[in-house]
Design a protein around this nucleic acid. Structure first.
Lengths: 144, 144
DNA sequence: ATTAATGCAAAAGTTTTGCATCGTT
DNA sequence: AACGATGCAAAACTTTTGCATTAAT
């Protein structure tokens, strides 16, 4: 939030109440929110905000490194607050119902370091996405 | 290809020359092809094929488990032939020199299945990318 | 002969953009 | 006052669908 203010100031941009509100809603939210979902929540507080502004603000947040857009299986782009290292997690996505689960596995993290070392690299970051299908009973949208 | 014929027969569908051509082009291609790109290649052989048919065929291939749709960073969905396990690999990328190394680690594969099961999903594919930097001596383009 | 598949065009859905106006600096 | 941001509507794109026609079974 402060980081956004800073970035905006540093780049000759303007800190509007829409940006403030959208950022606030975004950071308060549990992550994985689409522009449409963000708009809905934003409009609870200011019904005049437009979808275009949400998109423009999310692009801004992405540019300052505060948000990361993801396109998993779904139609829409969802945005996630940037990870601060501690809170890192990976994703597992159901291709039928589109739900996204998060997971963290310490063993994977260790193996990654080992693999990197084996290839003579020092790891800076990584990305791991598992795609699958909910077993029948659990899936919210089994297609057949 | 034979698998497609089988699936089609088993489900009372029809094995059309469009489906045959699209599947052929898809499997020949190096993966990561969008519907638009597939259409372009398909039309080199049959200029009458429509984009709708490409989409419909890719959905069919997805349903029989021969293709997997992915939405990475891009606008469009890209399709990848299903991995057969043996030939699967992940990537580790040096952010300095840009070299991409491939690796495969059986432990990671096992953990992935375990994680998927824990969340009630059956894994169809995954993507894992490690980003790092070559240690000085190895790097072809160390920047600092 | 049946009935699924195709091509086309229209529709649906998501994201971007042009422009007049508004609000921050 | 200057100029970036906003809201709106339209445009741009990707993907899906309705329908008359074609083709595989």
């Amino acid at each position: 939030m402060a980081a956004l203010r800073e970035y905006v100031a540093k780049n000759g941009l303007k800190f509007t109440k829409q940006r403030e509100l959208i950022a606030e809603v975004f950071f308060k939210g549990a992550g994985h929110l689409s522009a449409e979902e963000l708009l809905e929540r934003v409009r609870e507080q200011d019904s005049q905000v437009s979808l275009a502004t949400v998109y423009r603000t999310m692009k801004l947040l992405t540019d300052c490194g505060l948000a990361n857009p993801h396109r998993f299986g779904e139609r829409q782009t969802v945005y996630e607050p940037s990870e601060t290292g501690e809170e890192h997690h990976d994703h597992i996505i159901c291709q039928d119902c589109g739900r996204i689960f998060e997971f963290f596995d310490e063993r994977v993290e260790r193996i990654q370091d080992e693999v990197a070392a084996r290839h003579g690299l020092e790891l800076t970051s990584h990305r791991m996405e598992l795609y699958g299908r909910c077993v029948r009973a659990n899936c919210e949208n089994k297609k057949n």
